[in-house]
């Protein structure tokens, strides 16, 4: 078992006097095998991004356990956690904003290698960076650029390369394509899938788009209001959704081009 999440709860105190309590994540439990992709679907604001950050211990849970390869992360000190970070990584939603705006790509890509001393020499570092670039479909001409000189898709490729540099065992992808165009989304999704299979990475893939989830996941979990309302294999969820919310979500998917405007007038009116 790669990841095991048990009864995870996160409360936030809100309001001027911090006296109201909002439960962002409510008693979530699931597990993830090595090399498996679990798709997490839900509307914006349902707590899926909070859950992602909880699993990676970027924020502290109010209650519950997260185990990585059997080791309970909630007990670890900051220093011990820092060592484990290499194995668990995250890809964010806003590709351009997830890179340091004043760092050239060459530097951004070399940073994880230097941080964990994964390369012995400057030459080896250059070689590894070049290899990473090719792996995500970019070329050396991009090395001297700054993040704002890249398109959204290219920036997301860089973010992926940075994550791959560490050879992690587990990745959280937090809506990595929701800000991208359909065509670029396809490029990034197939790249993620290819890399994940090649490197046998366990992945929690978060999205609001059921079609995307269907394309990339082995299993699917549906989240509503901080709770997991349904979880099952991809086939189960899409063929025989049980929970009313899952049924509602699958109803928002439109397939193309079998349904056109004329056929959909009843839907529109």
């Amino acid at each position: 078992m790669l990841i095991e999440v048990k009864d995870l709860v996160k409360d936030y105190r809100v309001g001027i006097l911090k006296n109201r309590c909002v439960r962002a994540v409510d008693c979530v439990s699931f597990s993830l095998q090595v090399g498996e992709t679990l798709g997490l679907v839900g509307e914006s604001g349902c707590g899926k991004s909070t859950l992602a950050r909880l699993i990676l211990m970027l924020i502290k849970p109010t209650f519950g356990r997260v185990c990585f390869e059997g080791q309970d992360l909630t007990d670890l000190s900051q220093a011990e956690l820092l060592k484990l970070r290499r194995e668990m990584q995250i890809v964010f939603q806003q590709p351009q904003q997830s890179l340091h705006p004043r760092m050239k790509l060459a530097e951004s890509l070399a940073e994880p290698l230097r941080l964990y001393k994964l390369v012995k020499s400057k030459a080896a570092e250059k070689e590894r960076v070049r290899h990473l670039l090719h792996e995500v479909g970019l070329s050396e001409e991009h090395l001297e650029r700054y993040p704002h000189e890249l398109s959204g898709g290219q920036a997301q490729r860089v973010a992926l390369a940075r994550v791959l540099a560490l050879k992690p065992k587990f990745i959280v992808a937090d809506e990595p394509t929701s800000m991208l165009d359909v065509a670029v989304q396809a490029q990034i999704l197939s790249l993620i899938k290819k890399l994940q299979q090649e490197h046998k990475i366990g992945m929690l893939f978060i999205s609001h788009d059921l079609e995307v989830i269907r394309g990339i996941s082995d299993r699917v979990a549906v989240m509503q209001g901080g709770k997991l309302v349904e979880m099952g294999s991809k086939e189960q969820i899409f063929r025989e959704p049980q929970h009313p919310y899952t049924k509602f979500l699958t109803g928002t998917v439109f397939e193309l081009p079998t349904r056109l405007k004329r056929d959909n007038l009843r839907l529109v009116h």
């Binding site: 359909v182 396809a186 490029q187």
Partner: peptide
């Protein structure tokens, strides 16, 4: 073809 429903074959 790059729509998710069509198997997101990238350009």
């Amino acid at each position: 073809d790059s729509l998710p429903g069509r198997g997101f074959k990238p350009i």
